[in-house]
Write a protein that binds this DNA or RNA. Sequence first.
DNA 1: GTCTATAGTACGATAGAC
DNA 2: GTCTATCGTACTATAGAC
Lengths: 184, 184
Amino acid sequence: MSAREKVLDSYQAILIEEGERAATMDQVAARAGVSKGGLLYHFRDKTAMAEALLERARHLLEEDLAKMAAAPEGAASYYLRGSLLQDDPLDRLLLAAMQLAPEHDAAKLAAYREVQEGWFRLIREEVGDDAIADAVMLMGDGLYWNASMTSTLGDAPKGAREAGQARMAGLEGVLDILREAGRR
Amino acid sequence: MSAREKVLDSYQAILIEEGERAATMDQVAARAGVSKGGLLYHFRDKTAMAEALLERARHLLEEDLAKMAAAPEGAASYYLRGSLLQDDPLDRLLLAAMQLAPEHDAAKLAAYREVQEGWFRLIREEVGDDAIADAVMLMGDGLYWNASMTSTLGDAPKGAREAGQARMAGLEGVLDILREAGRR
DNA sequence: GTCTATAGTACGATAGAC
DNA sequence: GTCTATCGTACTATAGAC
């Protein structure tokens, strides 16, 4: 893997595990196995590094939108399942992006709102109602938020995966109720 | 108002408007109209200041739980309405607490989980189903998350309140669907 | 392309006057 | 109870060798 990629991975990992304040250029460089000078060859300042991470996110989000459109279980189920944060690359990237300092909020929001519109459109199409689609989107956001509150605590307790699946089963039931209501 | 309270208010305001990184002791002191030395008389270090803010939140959250139990429109509606962040003191406090550095995550989470359980119990009682109560809670979390994503951008556009009310009307409809389903 | 050395700054916190 | 002055540290970023 290129040093550039390794730096970006380290930046992302530290953001998730220890938060924005811990993601100093020293720490990122050390974790990536390069010196600070080496890091600064690839990213001329910290802002450039953050923007590269957001650029990564933008690409993965676009891919995800295509997958969602093709998901056999339906857009709504796909969306909620994706929000459960099962450690896939997109989840980790979004979790890291969320930690970015408010200085990057404008870029963050622009990138996020863009795909959020796409998600909404697909879910709206499936459930047939604006308010219901809004509710489904909010449930997904809520799942993300819960995950981001706990992500920095390094807790992946034993039963986490099982608990996540049980939770998802319950939410699937709620989705069924909403889908049926939307058809009427 | 006491200087101590003024400091805490300033800390909270800066956290919301400019994020955690901007909330330095210099900035907080300046906004509160005291010197850094003056500030440090009331809070011996930054951690103490953050904990005082969380303590404030804990009190307001307890009060809110009592209000929710007595809400005529029902716990679920009250909860979602409260998550729309109409600038009341509790909303602002939670928004600020959310910005606190991950060093305080343990305290944050403990305080939050405590009342979250209380909220869940009330909503569960109203809607009559675990999964539906979970979904309602998530919708509220999603609303908070959306608000926190935009709060640091200082945007309170003209039609914001009206848009919020229209959105709430839609979500009330979804709640009706879920309440009815829960009764069966 | 990656390193060391270092300049410059901002932050948290202490000491002591008033 | 609030101030000014100051110290130590950690961070971003630059300069220049290899």
